[in-house]
Amino acid sequence: MSSEFELIARYLAPAPAGGGAGVSLGVGDDCALLAPTPGMRLAVSVDTSVADVHFPAGAPADAIGHRALAVSLSDLAAMGARARWCLMSLTLLEADEAWVADFAAGFHALCAAAGVALAGGDVTRGELAVGVTVMGEVPEGLALTRAGARPGEVLAVTGALGGGAGGLARWQAGERDCDDALLRRYLRPEPRLGAGLALRELASAAIDVSDGLLADLGHLCTASGVGAALTPEALPLAEGLATALGDDEALHAALRGGDDYELLVTLPEAHLEPARARLAAEGLALTAIGRVSEAPGITGAVPDGAAGWQHFSGDTP
Rank of each mutant, 00 (worst) to 15 (best):
H311L: 14
G297Q: 10
D96A: 13
L267G: 04
V46E: 13
R10W: 07
L284I: 08
R188M: 10
L286Q: 04
A70W: 03
A160D: 09
A295H: 03
G196F: 04
V50T: 10
L7E: 10
A35H: 05
L25F: 12
R185W: 07
G258Q: 05
C31V: 13
G196W: 10
G290L: 02
H66F: 00
Y186I: 06
L73V: 00
A253D: 00
D304W: 08
E6Q: 14
G225R: 05
G28R: 06
A109P: 08
L161S: 00
W85H: 10
A112G: 07
L7C: 09
G164Y: 01
A32W: 02
G194I: 05
G212W: 12
G136A: 05
A129N: 04
G240H: 08
W309M: 06
L272V: 04
T231I: 14
G152N: 01
D122Y: 08
T37A: 11
R176L: 13
I8E: 15
H252A: 11
A277T: 15
G58R: 12
L267A: 02
L241E: 09
P236S: 03
L93Y: 04
L182Q: 06
T37S: 11
L155T: 09
G39A: 08
P151L: 05
L217P: 00
V302H: 10
G115D: 10
G240D: 07
V123Q: 02
H219M: 12
V44R: 08
P236F: 03
E249V: 02
A156E: 02
Y186C: 13
P60S: 14
P16E: 13
E4L: 03
E94K: 11
T48F: 09
A21R: 11
A253K: 06
G225Y: 04
L202V: 00
T145W: 08
V157L: 09
E269F: 03
R67Y: 02
V209G: 09
A51E: 11
A280R: 12
M88Q: 14
R278E: 13
S74Y: 07
P274A: 00
V138N: 03
C86W: 00
T316V: 15
L25V: 07
A281C: 02
A17R: 03
G18I: 08
A169N: 12
W99F: 15
A117I: 01
D177I: 01
A275K: 01
D29W: 12
L25I: 11
A13M: 12
A17G: 09
L144I: 05
P232Y: 01
V130I: 11
L155R: 07
D248P: 07
G163N: 07
A238K: 03
G162D: 12
A83D: 01
L7S: 12
A306D: 15
H108I: 04
L92W: 08
E294M: 08
L241Q: 03
G257R: 03
T299C: 06
P56H: 09
H108C: 11
R276V: 04
L168W: 12
T124D: 15
A280D: 10
Y186D: 10
L161A: 01
A203M: 02
R200T: 02
G227P: 05
M135S: 10
